[in-house]
Deep mutational scan, measured.
Amino acid sequence: MGFKLLSKLLVYLTASIMAIASPLAFSVDSSGEYPTVSEIPVGEVRLYQIADGVWSHIATQSFDGAVYPSNGLIVRDGDELLLIDTAWGAKNTAALLAEIEKQIGLPVTRAVSTHFHDDRVGGVDVLRAAGVATYASPSTRRLAEVEGNEIPTHSLEGLSSSGDAVRFGPVELFYPGAAHSTDNLIVYVPSASVLYGGCAIYELSRTSAGNVADADLAEWPTSIERIQQHYPEAQFVIPGHGLPGGLDLLKHTTNVVKAHTNRSVVE
């Protein structure tokens, strides 16, 4: 069995187990497998329904001669939608809004960016022009300005110390501490036991640490421990890039980060 097929099978099995364990909360999309990078042309966006009122959005972007996937989250909030992270750029984010209108038909009224990198804030200006209120932590807003990236308009308070959590509509926002970046936030959907790890969490097929220019490698494993301790009931975990899975993604990420750190020390 090929690795790609095995990865998709694991996603399907995880979703099936969740649907059985929580039949009222989960209505997993039966329309197909989780979209992969090879299936999404740059400039297009796919939506994948995880649970009743919960979707991931998947886009792709060219970077350094390669094409990478990027995940975000959409959560229903009454007759409105909360968006977590842009679709990595203005063109993708405009396509995301169009796809949401086509498939869901509810307005996106608020959006949260989970850290300051372009795959999370690139497209904020498109959201703002569409009347979406954009939010991020003060740290993310400051770092985005320093980096020359787009800056969300509103500040999220109460997320300055490791372990801080605040309720934001249908989700809980959690600051686990520094990891992929010093400002990275985690998003949890309690009604569906869905954990969105953003770039602080890796997919299972990833074996290298990737972009760690703004990471705190020493603190990252401790931050992941905080996530595990705060959300032990999480059933569906979405990484910032690639295929979702279960809580095993947290341990896998820790292993990859520690291996990278150990290699760096040896070198």
Rank of each mutant, 00 (worst) to 15 (best):
M1L: 07
G2D: 15
G2S: 13
G2T: 07
G2N: 15
F3R: 07
K4C: 09
L5Y: 15
L5V: 15
L6N: 15
L6C: 15
S7R: 08
S7I: 10
K8H: 06
L9A: 14
L9E: 15
L9Q: 15
L9I: 15
L9Y: 13
L10H: 15
L10S: 15
V11C: 15
V11D: 11
V11N: 10
V11Q: 07
Y12E: 10
L13H: 12
T14V: 07
T14Q: 08
A15D: 08
A15T: 11
A15I: 14
I17W: 13
I20N: 14
I20T: 11
S22T: 11
S22C: 09
S22F: 08
P23D: 11
L24A: 10
L24M: 14
A25P: 13
A25T: 12
F26Q: 15
S27V: 13
V28R: 08
D29H: 09
D29V: 10
S30P: 11
S31Q: 08
G32K: 09
G32I: 07
G32H: 14
G32F: 14
G32A: 11
Y34M: 15
Y34L: 11
P35D: 08
P35S: 09
P35Y: 10
P35W: 12
V37I: 14
V37E: 15
S38R: 10
S38Q: 09
S38G: 10
I40A: 09
I40S: 08
I40R: 07
P41L: 09
P41R: 12
E44H: 12
E44T: 13
E44D: 10
V45T: 06
V45L: 04
R46W: 10
Y48K: 11
Y48L: 15
I50R: 04
I50F: 08
I50E: 04
A51T: 12
D52C: 06
G53S: 11
G53V: 08
V54K: 02
V54S: 04
W55Y: 07
W55M: 03
S56Y: 15
S56K: 07
S56Q: 15
S56N: 15
S56E: 15
H57R: 04
H57F: 04
I58C: 05
A59Q: 11
A59G: 15
T60D: 05
T60R: 07
Q61A: 13
S62H: 06
S62M: 07
D64K: 15
D64C: 06
D64V: 12
G65E: 09
A66N: 15
V67R: 15
V67F: 15
P69Q: 15
P69D: 15
S70P: 05
S70I: 03
N71V: 02
L73G: 04
L73V: 04
I74W: 02
I74D: 02
V75H: 05
V75P: 03
V75A: 06
R76K: 07
R76N: 05
D77N: 08
D77I: 03
G78Y: 08
D79K: 09
E80Q: 12
E80S: 09
E80Y: 06
L81V: 11
L82R: 01
L83K: 00
L83Y: 00
I84V: 10
I84C: 00
T86E: 00
T86I: 06
A87P: 00
W88E: 00
G89P: 05
K91C: 06
N92F: 00
T93I: 03
T93R: 00
T93V: 00
A95C: 05
L96Q: 01
L97Q: 00
I100V: 11
E101R: 13
E101P: 07
E101L: 08
Q103K: 14
I104A: 00
G105S: 13
G105E: 10
G105F: 03
G105Q: 11
G105N: 11
L106C: 07
P107Y: 07
P107H: 11
V108G: 01
T109P: 06
R110G: 08
R110N: 15
R110D: 03
R110W: 09
R110H: 11
A111H: 05
A111F: 07
A111W: 04
A111Y: 07
V112W: 04
V112Y: 03
V112T: 04
S113E: 01
S113W: 02
H115G: 00
H115D: 00
F116Y: 09
F116S: 06
F116G: 02
H117L: 00
H117W: 00
D118T: 14
D118F: 06
D119W: 00
D119N: 05
R120L: 01
G122I: 04
G123S: 04
D125L: 07
V126G: 04
V126W: 08
V126Q: 05
L127W: 01
R128S: 11
A129W: 08
G131T: 07
V132C: 02
V132E: 03
T134D: 03
T134W: 02
Y135G: 01
A136K: 04
S139A: 13
T140E: 05
T140F: 04
T140S: 07
R141S: 05
R141D: 02
R142A: 13
R142S: 13
L143T: 04
L143G: 05
L143Q: 10
A144F: 04
A144K: 04
E145K: 14
E145F: 13
E145Y: 14
E145G: 13
E145C: 08
V146C: 09
V146N: 12
V146T: 13
V146P: 07
V146R: 14
G148D: 08
G148E: 09
E150D: 12
E150Y: 05
E150N: 06
I151M: 09
T153M: 10
T153H: 11
T153Y: 14
S155M: 13
L156W: 03
L156P: 05
E157S: 11
E157H: 11
L159R: 02
L159V: 11
S160W: 10
S161G: 13
S162F: 12
S162H: 14
D164Y: 07
D164E: 10
A165K: 14
V166W: 06
V166E: 07
G169N: 05
G169T: 04
G169M: 04
P170H: 02
P170N: 15
V171S: 01
V171Q: 01
E172L: 03
L173G: 01
F174V: 02
F174S: 05
Y175V: 03
Y175N: 08
P176W: 00
G177Y: 02
A178Y: 08
A179V: 06
H180F: 00
H180K: 00
H180L: 04
S181L: 01
S181H: 01
S181E: 01
T182F: 15
T182R: 13
T182I: 11
T182Y: 13
D183R: 00
N184G: 02
N184K: 02
L185A: 03
I186K: 00
Y188C: 04
Y188E: 01
Y188N: 05
V189P: 01
P190T: 08
P190G: 08
P190C: 05
S191T: 13
S191Y: 12
A192N: 07
A192L: 07
S193E: 13
S193I: 06
V194K: 00
V194P: 00
V194M: 06
L195K: 01
Y196H: 06
A200Y: 05
I201Y: 00
Y202H: 14
E203Q: 05
S205Y: 11
T207K: 15
T207G: 14
T207H: 14
A209M: 06
G210V: 04
N211P: 00
V212W: 03
V212C: 04
V212T: 09
V212Q: 07
A215T: 06
A215E: 03
A215Y: 02
A215R: 03
A215C: 05
L217H: 01
L217M: 10
L217A: 05
L217V: 11
L217R: 03
E219S: 12
E219I: 07
E219T: 09
W220A: 01
W220N: 00
T222K: 11
I224C: 02
I224G: 02
E225T: 11
I227P: 00
I227Y: 00
I227T: 09
Y231R: 01
Y231I: 02
E233I: 10
E233R: 13
A234G: 03
Q235E: 11
F236L: 09
V237N: 03
I238S: 03
I238P: 03
I238N: 05
G240W: 05
H241M: 01
G242W: 05
P244T: 03
L247C: 07
L247N: 14
L249K: 02
L249S: 05
K251S: 13
T253R: 02
T254Q: 11
T254G: 10
T254W: 14
T254S: 11
N255G: 13
N255C: 06
N255V: 12
V256K: 02
V256A: 05
V256T: 05
V257E: 00
K258T: 13
A259G: 14
H260Q: 11
N262P: 10
N262C: 05
N262E: 13
R263K: 15
V266D: 14
E267I: 08
